[in-house]
Amino acid sequence: MAGAPRIEHLITSGTFSLDGGTWNVDNNVWIVGDDDEVVVIDAAHDAGAVLAAIGDRRLSAVVCTHAHNDHVNAAPDVANATGAPILLHPDDQVLWTMAHPDRRPDGPLADGDELKVAGIGLRVLHTPGHAPGAVCLYAPELGAVFSGDTLFAGGPGATGRSYSDFGTIIASIGDRLLALPGETVVHTGHGDTTSIAAEAPHLQEWAARGW
């Protein structure tokens, strides 16, 4: 028996670099699946730790919520070790190339796609703003959405650097994420988990102050 589909969580540490600056960051790596098959959402920093968490299970894909280097820097090593494809929205190719100029993703993510793992679906929601090709992954059977850096506990992702836009991220959150059921648990790219219901009342407040 493969067991029930579930969400596993790993925190890895490294650096994020863009626009000439570098910052120390802790990233959430999410592993979704069962005892036989998983997907990795955002292979960050430490390929060895990610591979150890996967164990002897089949990795069906390395899914990138966006291509800032801290979310994709371990993706090629994880993919090469397992044979799994790296999936990325094409609008983030410019950011991907900064991190991996000699390795392209293996396949595209598009709004409305559904990735299957362990008998459940992960629906791709294109949510630009933090990055042009940012996506979230909604797993209705698990009551969860994986928000990357689009939505955090307490506010939207940062939009003060290249290839990001505040108005766009606010629209993405309002139109795509806040349309999900309120009880949906939000598994973020950094920091604490939250819920749609906890964040929804604050959208207009964020928009008004420009975050």
Rank of each mutant, 00 (worst) to 15 (best):
M1Q: 13
A2I: 02
G3A: 09
R6E: 15
I7W: 01
E8V: 04
I11H: 10
T15S: 09
G20D: 10
G20Y: 04
T22S: 15
N24S: 15
I31W: 05
V39F: 04
A44W: 01
A44P: 13
R57C: 02
L59C: 11
V63K: 03
A67E: 05
N69V: 12
N69Y: 03
V72R: 00
V72P: 00
N73Q: 05
V78G: 00
A79V: 12
A81F: 06
A81W: 01
A81S: 14
T82K: 01
L87W: 11
L88N: 08
Q93N: 12
L95Y: 08
A99K: 09
H100S: 07
R103I: 11
R104Y: 07
R104A: 15
P105H: 05
D106F: 00
G112K: 13
E114M: 14
L115G: 04
L115W: 00
K116T: 15
A118R: 05
I120R: 02
I120A: 07
G121E: 08
L122E: 06
R123K: 15
V124W: 07
G129S: 10
A131S: 14
G133T: 00
G133M: 03
A134Q: 15
Y138K: 06
P140C: 12
T150N: 01
L151V: 05
F152E: 02
G155N: 05
G157Y: 06
T159Y: 06
D165F: 08
G167S: 09
T168S: 07
D175R: 10
R176S: 08
A179C: 10
V186S: 03
V186Y: 07
D192A: 15
A207H: 10
R209K: 12
W211H: 14
